[in-house]
Amino acid sequence: MGMDSLIGGTIWDEYSQKVTDLMNNPQNMGEITQEQADEMGATLIIADFGAESCGDAVRLYWAVHPKSDVIMLSKFKSFGCGTAIASSDTMAELCKGKTVDDAVKITNIDVEMAMRDNPDTPAVPPQKMHCSVMAYDVIKKAASLYKGVDMESFEKEVIVCECARVSLSTLREVIRLNDLTTVEQITDYTKAGAFCKSCIRPGGHEKKDIYLVDLLEEYEKEKMTKTADSLTTGGPVSFTDMTVVQKLKAVDKVIDDNIRQMLIMDGGDMEILDIKENGEHIDIYIRYLGACNGCASSSTGTLFAIEGILKEKLDTNIRVLPI
């Protein structure tokens, strides 16, 4: 929420002047023919990435010097929006004069930075960032064709958020180090999910192998398993880390071990109805059964005994509320 999100964006107004100029008049748009490459004594590479059915496609032409691996000429053609065309143009420009190995190091973030009018203002609005990713992918494609290797061999990391180039290993580490539980927190810490939002959960613009919500779920399960393991091995587990079921079991066990015998001897019993977190308190709702129900001590001595032992054994913030 907030005013900006209430008003919504006008995406073109957020383009830098450079993006606008390149869309109006792309500098490296064009083709390199086999004849031209031959005349230059260069190897012609033509790489395609994307597809019209996906909404954007780019074809990159390179004339590469076969001895030095230097990209002598670099041209593009693109089916896409203004950002896609301007990014492809900038990418083709950045390739010129570089060796193929150096060109592979150009990322979509470099392309976006190169299109900024000033270093602190993004060249395109967040939801357009993904249109620049293809400019990065097509370089890898061209390099893979030139070197006769797989595209994947250029990418050592699994990238979850391509717009901000945040890897799976970074995300896993940041989530665990900072005990993150929401997508908003991940975005605050890493910028992942801040742009086209496809990596947050299924159903976005692009299909992904793994989403931010999967990583949160993975961590959540990991924590649960860890707690459960500690409980079985008798290791130390904080009451607040337990799942609802584990909490219930733990409370029941304390009651069984310390209180229930006493109640039953007096012809009564009790049951646990609910456990709720209430600010810093953990409220445990109970109901007395049999003779306990209505007994004078049930709201004084017995109650203090129950609450006291639970505070001692489990958590000092526990309150016991008979209903």
């Binding site: 012609l44 994307g50 693109s78």
Partner: peptide, 23 residues
């Protein structure tokens, strides 16, 4: 259309690698 990759040059026999996109 002059900018578009859909109408772009490719030498005879060139096979486009258009199946590799991840959308």
């Amino acid at each position: 259309r002059e900018i578009s990759s859909s109408y772009a040059y490719a030498p005879e026999g060139y096979e486009s690698g258009l199946d590799s996109h991840h959308h």
